[in-house]
Design a protein around this nucleic acid. Structure first.
Lengths: 376, 376
DNA sequence: GGGCATGCTACAAACGTTTGTGCAGGACCC
DNA sequence: GGGTCCTGCACAAACGTTTGTAGCATGCCC
């Protein structure tokens, strides 16, 4: 009762605030305002025209001067007075388009993802779309139900950020013919558009940085084995090392969490005690790596350097500040959104893959290798 | 073409993966699969029954044994075979409920908010609802358009996390009679349910901690003036100080950002150079405060202690690790979601306000006050 | 001044569901 | 063995839009 009863001044505010009020101004309209919101029919009746005319006017479909200026204005005025708002459910049913897109991310509570969400959301909203969000915990089992929910609301397209190598959910999506663009992680298929970080360039930057600091015993903490970025980053890691005549060890984390970074790094450190640098596939893993290093009684960056990937927010405030590969989250998100919008508009267009340019940002977690530890 | 053409094995995966495939198995169904997804009518025709029967079966409305076991099974089988999925747009049109709720947060890219989103999302999904998300940048002007978009998709209810004192958008929402529950920030109105951090208790904990460390010259960095938590936190700050026979200065930030925290703290430090502790209304402001302290040539916590509020993720990794008041984001989010669900189910229920219990977590940004600075 | 083009608006059929009600046939009771 | 009740399903009317097409004026041309 409390909610429905209030008609104005609901929270004790003065009259005349600057926001649009779709409901009629008190006393401004003839028919008593029933509980139901006004429909096209109501507006039509009040304006003395047919609903189709109202529909066209309100959709700016007046096209080639099909409707009198006068009628047009009258309809708009009535609509405003009645507080008409289009029922987009009905519209969606009729047009087959919902103007909703779904976005599935590994973890909403991850800062890096949040930036992408932000970038995507901005462009989507600018185009009149709404964004529905789902978080899978980076667990493929969750992905299926989340995606199912999105198809449930008849999303016009999907932004899919949790692709795996043999991704059944993704296959399903493609099967269904719904527009999808991948972000963060790719799929082998070239038939799905994607916007991804440039893993290879980024990793090369990172490894070369480490090499230039004199590090020779470098290990790599990879992400889940069946994720494209893991594969690309590991591949490039080994490649660059090989070019330098070196070899590195690596391990795989099951998930992109600090705990996993800790676990994998601990193992690696035990296996290769002479390690002086670790390249993590992701900032959170890097954080875990730093924990492991400390746990092993060594320090970062004095004894072992760490470099991450993504440049998550606040990375500069950590102790030590994290050296990492920066990817513009906002750009990545907005590029993905734009691509999806284009795909929705023209489902037949060929898929394209965009690579977001990486940038190495050197901070406090990397330092020159101790050239001669025994001399200390 | 790329997207729509593929019918199976889209990304080169082996057959027989473990996920449900709503589309028919190749060759499994008689009628050619046209472009359009199957409807209730298709299922009905195939199963030789009326659509209403199919509808009831698929909605488990078979109620009191109204439908034969046999018919029931046959319908389900056909539905599965045809890959039928309910068109929730049509359903929403008919039922007037969309099973979508909107959530508006100040900033998606804020970790603290992300945790709340997470908590809310989990319970919503568990109840078959989808979550559409909007971020306002903590700018009331954005809020209006975002909320409008949510009403546009006919959300069944709203989780509103950006309430201000004279919040026109909120007033509008209440006017419209749409179920709303506030989180993070309250409104004066007792007619809207809310789940909020217990600002008073939390602030008291924080100030008492500072006092117990011997601090006597404490300043407060508040948030925007027209936000409930700002008012509550400032009020309690002054109250506790007064009980101790002290007085503190304070300033207001326009937004909850590091930049604003920096600005306000700088001003405060200049005004009261003898300050030895700052209580910030929020962790991000606290971070800015630390910046300001350093900029002023002093150090945290040695010269001046800082305590934040919220306990944002990674607060323990900052340098120095942040002493702050912990609020369980997950709980807060899930409580808000539950409350909203109840309100949607019964719009007439009286509003209730829940307070999330705070907990002081002492880390490295606070230290005992230098009892006698001049003696050093 | 009649026919024709043209400008403006109304008609009506969808879109895919849900759900109150109607109607058979069979079982049960007396 | 007939009435009554239940069981199991079908009918049809919405929900609020959009949009192809029809229709009716009016103005213009010849």
């Amino acid at each position: 009762m409390a909610l429905r009863r209030k008609k104005s001044g609901g929270i004790g505010r003065p009259e005349g605030f600057g926001y649009p009020r779709p409901v009629s101004t008190p006393g401004g309209n003839g028919e008593a305002r029933t509980g139901k919101p006004p429909t096209l029919r109501d507006v039509a009746r009040e304006a003395g025209v047919h609903v189709s005319t109202v529909s066209r006017v309100l959709n700016d479909q007046a096209a080639a001067g099909r409707i009198t200026q006068d009628t047009d204005e009258r309809i708009r005025e009535v609509a405003r007075r009645l507080g008409y708002r289009r029922n987009s459910i009905a519209r969606a049913l009729r047009t087959g388009r919902t103007l909703v897109v779904g976005m599935v991310v590994p973890d909403v509570a991850n800062l890096y993802q949040a930036g992408i969400t932000r970038g995507a959301g901005d462009v989507l909203y600018a185009h009149g779309y709404s964004l529905i969000l789902a978080s899978t915990d980076d667990d493929p089992k969750h992905a299926e139900s989340q995606v199912s929910a999105m198809l449930g609301v008849q999303a016009d397209g999907l932004l899919y950020g949790v692709a795996r190598e043999d991704d059944a959910v993704l296959a399903w999506l493609v099967d269904e013919g719904i527009p999808v663009v991948l972000f963060n992680r790719g799929a082998e298929s070239r038939e799905i558009s994607a916007v991804l970080p440039d893993d290879r360039t980024g990793t090369r930057l990172a490894v070369e940085h480490l090499l230039s600091l004199g590090h020779r015993n470098i290990v790599h903490v990879g992400g889940p084995e069946d994720v494209s970025s893991t594969v690309n980053r590991l591949g490039t890691f080994e490649e660059v090392l090989q070019e330098a005549g070196l070899r590195g060890s690596h391990g795989f984390a099951h998930r992109h969490t600090e705990e996993e970074g800790y676990r994998v790094t601990s193992d690696l450190l035990e296996e290769r005690p002479d390690t002086t640098a670790v390249l993590a596939a992701n900032d959170r893993l890097a954080l875990g790596a730093i924990d492991a290093i400390r746990e092993a009684g060594r320090s970062c960056p004095e004894d072992v350097s760490v470099v991450g990937f993504n440049d998550m927010p606040y990375g500069d405030r950590f102790s030590p500040p994290l050296t990492t590969v920066h990817i513009s989250q906002n750009n990545l998100g907005s590029m993905a959104a734009k691509l999806l919008l284009e795909t929705i508009a023209d489902p037949g267009r060929p898929a394209e893959t965009h690579l977001a340019a990486p940038e190495l940002v050197v901070r406090g977690s990397t330092a020159p290798a101790q050239t001669d530890r025994s001399s200390l």
